[in-house]
Design a protein around this nucleic acid. Structure first.
Lengths: 336, 336
DNA sequence: CTGAAAGCGCTAACAC
DNA sequence: GTGTTAGCGCTTTCAG
């Protein structure tokens, strides 16, 4: 295909075709202001006839604000963020807004660049993951003068709106649940790549609750490869061979825990009879697993949906927007 | 937060601060054309000092083309498309392009609207899923005058570039592999929501290959709920209770197949001893499963990466762009 | 190497 | 109801 210079069809063409002024055409197409029925029809027909598509760049530049909504997430390998995106897509359906996304790879520098880049599109709003952006990034967000929603975390000071749950508390509550089940020799398994701020916060809450009960982790193992089922299986095998007496393993997420479950099944270890496995997120996979794994179900799709909805609403009525903290609470599920 | 009218800092402000004209500032910031070192420094400092962010809307409008790249995918619940997005994000890293996405829900009408909407951003390129858009949508794509990449399929006539594999052939090859393993009483399990065009094409190829061997499907079960592990487990249980003599089940994807595996484990059915399970995609989960499932590994991340790379390259050098078909081939894996 | 002028395609703000 | 006039903030000319 040759990218030749095709004739661009613009609003002026539509107006000419319909025999009205650009403004009438513009109003008719957007349904704004009063336009006679006759002209509305004429314009719509003309637009269809000559294949008018419109130019968001021009309308946004003129209107001082675009219909874009910026989303910065740390990763797409983690299904959790795909769920967040799905929630966002769901919430903006029909609103005329469209999401632009950027993947930060858990890197504050990249995150700053992405935020900066997104801001230059003058988006209707921004959704960023977590509360721990770099100072530069936070300054950008604070001065952006658009709704900014920070999601998935609550432990910190939000820039504007915050939709999430306390990662620390989630860790504490899981510790509490496991203690209630009588677990005493507990190990932690995580992954380096996955050791983002939020996983760290959960681990902190977890160990703190343990120490209040006079306990500490019997073992800690942080893999250096990427997180996933395979990694979980291997790390579990390693940890259990070094510490065969464990009665519980807390994983930084469900993928790792599922891998742990597969190891236990293969090794003939009863779960949760001989050992309790606990994960995080409440992934679909756990429900069908032949063993029971404890997990905290995180409402990530709802979080995405709520975050996007707030921006959609602020976009329709800017006065309605206000800084606020919307708190969710992960629910602990025992897999039965 | 009150969305007050803040002072926007524009290129003119930077120019004033640096004591040069807007043009010199513009050139210095973009590194285009020749600007003296002195002025370049002055401008850069001025920009940083007053916190200039730039306005992509204005530059794109002026430059006739934006740095956006539009992506239309059918769903985010399906991890396959999250992988595609991940590949896209990977490929455009550092290129200055940013992805805008839309979710079609396998709905041609929605897809048309999304494509139309994206085109109005005058994107640098478009990535759409499959070859089966509506005629209206195809017309838009054909006239868009930008690189258009259709991904994940090969069975049909591409608009411009096509990066994918033949779904029909994938179905045929899986049938062939299962026949080679001596399977004879084969059932198919899919999901209504998941019964997109591509799953249909695979099924067609599959049954055609069977009939060439003088066989036909022993049973076909299409669930009406959403696809997933849980659905797979239930559907498998149902099909097996009606047809206990099956020696093989072909699923429309790995999630369903994994659910089937869990059913078999719970029911004490040896896999693949008593029954062979075959899925599609080559998801991570299969590797760690305590049973062996046959699958076709699809290079979805590579496809996303390649598609995006083509657009990045065309963006750097439009003359290099040409319509072409990039063919991938899913590899059948036997889970051992 | 630098700058002034003229738009890019659209819409807000006013007239009529 | 409809049209006119000015931009939105930037870059592409084209002169110096």
């Amino acid at each position: 295909m040759i990218l030749d210079e095709r004739i661009r069809v613009t609003l002026a063409d539509v107006a000419a075709e319909a025999g009205v002024s650009k403004m009438t055409a513009s109003r008719a197409l957007r349904g704004s202001g009063d336009v006679s029925n006759t002209n509305t029809k004429k314009v719509r027909q003309a637009a269809r006839k000559i294949g008018y598509v419109g130019n968001h760049l021009a309308s946004s530049l003129s209107g001082q604000r675009s219909d874009l909504i910026g989303v910065a997430i740390p990763s797409l390998a983690n299904i959790v963020f795909a769920d967040v995106l799905a929630g966002i897509a769901e919430a903006i359906e029909g609103s005329g807004l469209q999401p632009v996304f950027g993947v930060t790879d858990y890197d504050l520098g990249k995150e700053y660049e992405i935020i900066r880049n997104m801001l230059s599109w003058k988006p209707a709003g921004l959704i960023v993951t977590g509360l721990d952006q770099s100072d530069d990034a936070k300054r950008l967000l604070a001065n952006a003068n658009i709704p900014v929603v920070q999601i998935m975390d609550l432990d910190g000071t939000p820039v504007d709106v915050c939709v999430g749950f306390s990662q620390r508390a989630a860790g504490e509550e899981m510790a509490e649940a496991l203690l209630d089940m009588g677990r005493k020799r507990i190990a932690y398994i995580g992954c380096g790549v996955d050791m983002d701020v939020r996983a760290k916060k959960r681990l902190e809450g977890f160990t703190e609750r343990l120490s209040r009960a006079g306990l500490k982790l019997a073992a800690t193992r942080i893999g250096d490869g990427p997180s996933g089922i395979t990694a979980g299986r291997e790390l579990t095998s390693e940890v259990l061979s070094e510490h065969p007496d464990l009665d519980c393993i807390y994983y930084s997420n469900d993928d790792l825990a599922a891998g742990g479950a597969f190891h236990c099944i293969a090794a003939g270890l009863a779960v949760p009879g001989a050992i309790t496995l606990a994960g995080f997120n409440g992934l679909d996979i756990l429900e069908s697993l032949p063993v029971e794994i404890v997990t905290s179900r995180t409402p990530r799709r709802e979080i995405g949906r709520t975050a996007a909805k707030l921006i959609v609403e602020a976009n329709n009525d800017a006065d309605k927007h206000q800084s606020q903290i919307l708190k969710y609470t992960p629910v602990i599920e025992f897999g039965d």
